[in-house]
Structure formats: C-alpha cells, structure tokens
Design a protein around this nucleic acid. Structure first.
Lengths: 128, 128
DNA sequence: CAGAATCCGCTGGGATACTG
DNA sequence: CAGTATCCCAGCGGATTCTG
C-alpha cells in the first residue's frame, strides 16, 4: 500500500486527520463499528444492539461511515424494506483499535470509579 | 489484578463504561494523552502541542482526566506558577490504544478522502 | 422496516476579561 | 504562567411525526 502517514498530523488544527479522529472517536461510531464487527446487520438489529441510540443518530452516523468508505449499505428491493450494513475492508481494520479501546474501558472502569470517589472526597469545599 | 470485565457493557445505555468510552474517545482527550505520552509537561506546553485547543477545554479536560485518575497534576509553589501534568500508570496504559487510533487515522486518511469524493460524486441529486 | 423531516433543548466549546 | 468566570452561539442529539 505504501502509505505516507507522515503528511497527516492530527495535532495540527487544520489537518483533515483531526476531523477523522473526531469521527472515529465519536460516541456512537465506536459502538456501531463494534456492533457490525461480527458481520452484516439490518438497521433494526443495530438499533437493538446499541442500546439507547436514536434512529436519527444511527442513520446519520451510518451515512457518515458509508461516505468515508468504512461501511457498505445494501438495499434489498423487497417489501417491507430490508437494508443491511456491513464493514468494508477499511472498516474492519478499525475493529481492532476500537475493540482495544472498549476493552480498556471495561478493564479500568472500577479503577476510574474509585479514583473519582477519592477525587471528589478530596475536593471538599464545593459543597455548601 | 484479576479484573472482572464482564460486568461492564458499553452497549448498555446505563452502564458507566459507556460514559467512560465517551471520555476517552473525546476529541481532546486523545490528543492530550498523546501530548503527555513522552513525559510530564506544563500547561502551556500542552497548549502549544495540541494546536487550536482553547485554555478552557484544556483545563476542563485535564480536570476530568485527573478526576478519573489518568493524569497527575503537580503544582510547584513558585512564581510565576509552574504546574506539570503527567500520566499515571492507568493513563499510560491508555497510550497504546489511543496511539493505535491515531495511527489508523493517519494511515487511512487518503483512502477516506477518496471515498468521500466518490460518494459525493455518486450522490448527485442534492444539488440545484 | 427503514428512513426523512421537523422541532427544540442542552451543552460543548470558543472568545474575552479578570486574578493570584 | 496558570488558571477562573462569563457571555454566547452552533450543532449534537433526543422525541415525535410522516412516508414508501
């Protein structure tokens, strides 16, 4: 592939890679990619897997991912409509990094919770 | 450490791990952790490294990271003030996953850009 | 079922001014 | 230098309604 990664620098406010980082770090993107990591799924299935996502945000995020070439959208001309979403090769390559993030979150959840208690207890003076 | 990760599920809207995922996927968190990955740094240094971040967001994000036990804040009682931020052990464990994300973004930037052009060209009908 | 469209509140986040 | 405090706007994103 011979990719020149040196030309992209997310630490520069004007670099497109910063916005890409925004997208993939997006609250819903992480979960949607995760939900699609085991194969193609219908719109409704994703809604169920990603608990609490609104239909608007799901559509919107999927469109963005499709535009970025990370997800492929397939419409089956049947009634009622059947639309399936699946990761492209690029999309699949995102699975591992995002899964790692998910894994990190789960592993450190209790530690973070504990740290917060300590912090909040130490930061006395905010209460009446 | 024997961590029971099975109790956390970010796909559940009420699980705290979803919010943690939000935090670490945050636009600024990724860059700030990255900026601190090579050692302690002063407030101003981070501002310069993370191009375009406002002092408000830097303070706010750093406070959140400190509260979560990912960053340690050290104040040197000198004048003018000198405050250094450094990653804790937990914070350092986040470096690799986030660096992977950054790396992914840089590697796939050009592909994504190309995909967008194709998509936008295909999606004719939005104009005029 | 899959989605488009609309209304709208909330807050993320920038700009600016002030302080220790 | 390292913040804190305010003002304020844009847009994220939820709820609801309507359609093919």
């Amino acid at each position: 592939m011979s990719l020149d990664t040196s030309q992209w620098n997310p630490y520069d406010r004007n670099c497109p890679s910063r916005r890409l980082l925004d997208r993939i770090g997006d609250r819903w993107t992480v979960l949607i990619i995760g939900a699609l990591s085991d194969g193609p799924h219908r719109f409704k299935t994703i809604t169920e897997r990603v608990d609490g996502i609104s239909q608007k945000m799901l559509t919107q995020t999927l469109r963005g991912l499709e535009r970025d070439g990370l997800v492929k959208r397939t419409v089956y001309p049947v009634v009622p409509p059947r639309v399936e979403y699946e990761l492209t090769a690029a999309g699949r390559s995102l699975c591992k990094p995002l899964a790692a993030l998910e894994e990190w979150a789960k592993e450190h959840m209790s530690g973070v919770l504990a740290a917060r208690e300590t912090y909040d207890a130490t930061t006395v003076g905010a209460d009446a």
